[in-house]
Design a protein around this nucleic acid. Structure first.
Lengths: 198, 198
DNA sequence: CCTAGAATGTGAGCGTGCTCATAAAGAGGT
DNA sequence: ACCTCTTTATGAGCACGCTCACATTCTAGG
């Protein structure tokens, strides 16, 4: 049984589409892997030839969204101050992630504290690395070259905190999240500057 | 079948002790609820008359530790500045939580983003409320009365971030965690002051 | 064509956390 | 003593995520 790369890619996309639909209609917990497999037209076990775990399916959906957001951000990357630039980046991410808002929580538990778990989670780790490299580059571009050692850990904590809040934010247009994001970045950038000047 | 409150309390403590031992010997995931029940001398189902979920057992262990830490903190609550006071509080907590360090991670996933889930998790929610009230009181005691609206959300994000780091910190005496805690509090307090002065 | 071998699909089955109908065991009234 | 009623303990059983021995399907070499 040999199958073309096209067919494999098609199956992968069918799984992602089916999973997205079911996660939206039900929830991450109530949509079972058996349901997803049936909706994608494959056997229950086959699902795990494509994704090593249920969470990895969400990571697959999320990776797409993050990729799109970064592509879009690179294009209109203006020349505001650091605050505004970071805000624009994360706002772009939230925009792309919006369809996944209700079921990204499982990912946060996985992506969150991975200071010890180097490459435990496959797709999720890439998301983290890519985002952090992008942010580090932006910080450098704005003239801050000597970061306090724990800077990026602190940044990541604040970033995931905003995402966690956003996932449960029921204010009209998730405007409460934007307020929290604004304050988080203000605090972080102020601290960055005060730490690198002396 | 009626049982004295003493017997119930004794069973509860036997469960907590057995669970603590097994979580330490194995891990949160590999120690099964059946194992815990057998070690406590009860049937598998009886366990769930005492704790609504496996995570709730960890919450029970943790609640004890947090309580002890707060009691100890109240006694030697000196009159340092806000930074030092918060550092002392959290350091006291970490000291008491140390035996649980390897398996508190499941709690963080539960306690972490609970901005939406009002009272979803029983013991865990109490831990959060108690800690936040204590911190809010300390902030007030140090002359800061008008908190920016998202202050406590930001604080909680930083606090759980430190705990998550600590849970996976393999540096000699978890000294890396203390460095992160120091910086986190410095950033937070600096931001608090700059926000409440104007 | 045929056949050997490799890659992928399949679903029965495992161990898990947790539930629920039922059994067992007191406390209180007569 | 006896019966009733309430509370707790029990373990068979459920649905889940995931695994693995096997079936199935295609390619390649003759």
């Amino acid at each position: 049984m040999r199958i073309t790369a096209d067919e494999k890619q098609a199956t992968r996309l069918r799984i992602l589409a089916a999973a997205g639909d079911l996660f939206r209609q039900h929830s991450f917990e109530t949509a079972t892997t058996r349901d997803i497999a049936r909706a994608a037209g494959i056997a229950a076990g086959t699902l795990f030839n494509y994704f090593p775990s249920k969470e990895a399916i969400v990571a697959g959906l999320a990776e797409d969204a993050w990729g799109k957001a970064h592509a879009r951000f690179q294009k209109l990357s203006g020349t505001g101050d650091l605050n505004e630039t970071l805000f624009a980046l994360i706002a772009a991410e939230l925009r792309e992630l919006k369809p996944l808002r209700k079921f990204v929580a499982p990912l946060l538990d996985t992506v969150l504290s991975p200071l010890a778990s180097a490459s435990a989670h496959h797709g999720a780790d890439d998301i983290r690395r890519e985002h952090l490299e992008l942010v580090a580059a932006l910080i450098r571009d704005h003239g801050i070259h000597e970061l306090p050692p724990v800077s990026m850990q602190l940044y990541w904590t604040l970033y995931t905190g905003v995402l966690a809040f956003w996932a449960g934010d029921n204010s009209p247009k998730q405007e409460d999240t934007l307020a929290l994001l604004d304050q988080s970045l203000a605090m972080f950038v102020q601290w960055l500057r005060s730490g690198s000047v002396p």
